[in-house]
């Protein structure tokens, strides 16, 4: 993927560039707001990683300008610790995802991956089908190879989120944000316990596990 990184701190910039390059991405770096905005406008990027605090033009204003100009390149915004309202502000301004520094590289990689191939929203689609598993978002039913599986609401939401991003790594924090709407990390492994339950229910009577654990990163729903 061609990624534009707009970040003024050299060390952070190098860390992210190295990490993304190692994951096979082609990274261009912009060092301040105005430069970054100019680079973003020339287009041709699959995703933009944007620091919220930038010299010249801050991240929020940059996204707003970009969106006002009709540019729809997916944007992942980075911010320092703290700022409970920051996430909402960032998403309101037009960012597609939000990540708090410091973060682990697999987390950023997974999020960029999820951004880059974000499917176009299909409002009418209420059925997800991956492999032999089918999920009906309206009726809230799940079946595997035609066999009904009864899930708890959180388990259902978790499965839907994994299936929507089938083939892509979903990290713990991404799942906490999207399934539970948590902007904090509870000390109890609630994601693990839920995935474990979900697996038990899905795999009852089957041999292959549709969910793969990626060590140090998260979970993938196998397409």
């Amino acid at each position: 993927m061609r990624i534009l990184l707009i970040e003024d701190d050299l060390q952070t910039s190098r860390y992210i560039t190295d990490g993304l390059a190692a994951a096979g991405h082609d990274v261009t770096v912009g060092c301040d707001g105005p430069t970054g905005l100019a680079q973003a406008r020339t287009g041709g990027f699959d995703a933009i990683v944007l620091d919220r605090m930038l010299p010249g033009l801050d991240g929020l204003a940059l996204v707003q300008t970009l969106r006002a100009a009709g540019n729809t390149t997916p944007v992942l915004m980075l911010t320092a610790i703290g700022g409970i309202a920051d996430r909402v502000d960032g998403l309101d301004a037009g960012a597609d995802d939000y990540l708090v520094k410091p973060f682990a590289m697999p987390e950023l990689a997974a999020r960029i991956h999820a951004l880059g191939r974000r499917p176009a929203p299909r409002a009418l689609e209420h059925r997800l089908a991956v492999g032999d598993i089918e999920l009906d978002l309206l009726r809230r039913t799940v079946s595997r190879a035609g066999q009904r599986i009864v899930l708890q609401p959180r388990e259902f939401a978790l499965l839907a989120e994994l299936m929507r991003h089938a083939g892509r790594v979903m990290t713990r924090t991404m799942l906490l944000e999207r399934v539970w709407d948590f902007d904090f990390d509870p000390r109890t492994n609630i994601v693990e316990t839920h995935v474990s339950r979900l697996r038990t229910k899905l795999n009852d009577g089957f041999t292959n596990d549709p969910i793969t654990t990626v060590r140090g990163a998260g979970y993938v729903f196998n397409p």
Binding site: I84, W180, F182, D183, F184, T188
Partner: peptide, 19 residues
């Protein structure tokens, strides 16, 4: 109130009980 903060409050209490 703030739903996320209240979630965290309850989560912390349950975390404590578990841990």
């Amino acid at each position: 109130g703030d739903k996320r903060l209240l979630s965290q409050m309850i989560a912390n209490l349950l975390d404590n009980a578990l841990r």
